[in-house]
């Protein structure tokens, strides 16, 4: 089972398991990016991590996806320690970065197939999955195009396909709709709802309140590295007179939402 020591814990843990003491993963240098963040995400949950710019969302995702080493505390993702078993964690997660970073030397199809190969998926199976994913994400006609020829929204869909092709247990998305026009954003929301309906565990960061409200089963509100609240969107909104998450945040943090 999992240690009783504190920390973020992403499934793997038993649903509802809570750490017994606070974790203090910190960002590098003088700035304390995260402090005393205790979170548990349940299997199959769509978990929203929301906060304004500078709240520590990217650092949190960085720690959970083994891209940032915490200077203290622990985090368990998909049953493995992000520091001591980082390779195992990486095998079990898919990550959609904030800015699309496809392999520009390859076309869209090759991006998927080579990425699958990195995760040990054999050629034939990778080809089958790539075809399926491109179809489901509505970019099958772009398969053989250079990624530079894809729009921002299409590149982001490609990033989602890439994050899924090795069949991860948990999908992480770091502000997936930043810079997208409303149509592209709504399309992406549809895709994320479908993925959630398939039973996938999804952890998404955003600074856009309506996005967290629309998609998440539960939201963690963080600011300046601290957890301000953790509950369903409905329960959080009930605590404000106008039923607005933004009002809730301002009341909790004592500052405006500079999103």
């Amino acid at each position: 089972m999992y240690p009783a020591a504190g920390g973020l814990a992403i499934p793997g843990a038993q649903p509802g398991w809570a750490p017994s003491n606070g974790a203090q993963p910190r960002g590098g240098g003088e700035t304390v990016a995260l402090e005393g963040l205790d979170l548990v995400v349940n299997e199959g949950e769509f978990f929203g991590l929301i906060g304004p710019n500078g709240a520590g969302k990217t650092t949190t995702i960085g720690v959970l996806t083994t891209r940032v080493i915490p200077t203290g505390g622990t985090a368990w993702v998909a049953g493995a320690d992000v520091v001591r078993q980082s390779v195992t964690v990486r095998q079990r997660i898919g990550v959609v970065p904030q800015r699309p970073n496809p392999d520009r030397a390859l076309d869209a199809w090759e991006n998927l197939v080579y990425h699958a190969a990195y995760f040990g998926v054999n050629r034939k199976e990778a080809a089958r999955r790539a075809t399926e994913l491109l179809e489901r994400l509505g970019i099958a006609d772009k398969a053989r195009m250079k990624v530079d020829q894809l729009s921002g929204g299409q590149q982001q869909r490609l990033m989602i396909a890439r994050a899924l092709i090795h069949e991860p247990m948990i999908l992480f998305l770091d502000e997936p709709t930043v810079g997208l026009d409303p149509n592209a954003r709504n399309s992406l929301w549809e895709i994320l709802r479908d993925l959630h309906a398939q039973g996938r565990t999804i952890v998404m960061t955003t600074h856009y309140m309506p996005e967290a409200d629309e998609l998440s089963d539960r939201i963690a509100l963080i600011d300046r590295g601290r957890l301000l609240a953790l509950d369903t969107p409905e329960n959080l909104k009930k605590q404000t007179p106008d039923g607005s998450l933004e009002t809730f945040f301002i009341a909790k943090s004592g500052r405006g939402w500079d999103a």
Binding site: T88, Q91, F119, G153, E167, M169, G199, R200
Partner: peptide
């Protein structure tokens, strides 16, 4: 933008009880 239809996962979703073997 193309509409994506809701569907079941095309292949089984790996779970903590049944993870993929290490590569």
């Amino acid at each position: 933008m193309g509409r994506v239809s809701a569907a079941t996962a095309p292949w089984p979703v790996a779970s903590i009880a049944n993870p993929h073997p290490p590569v």
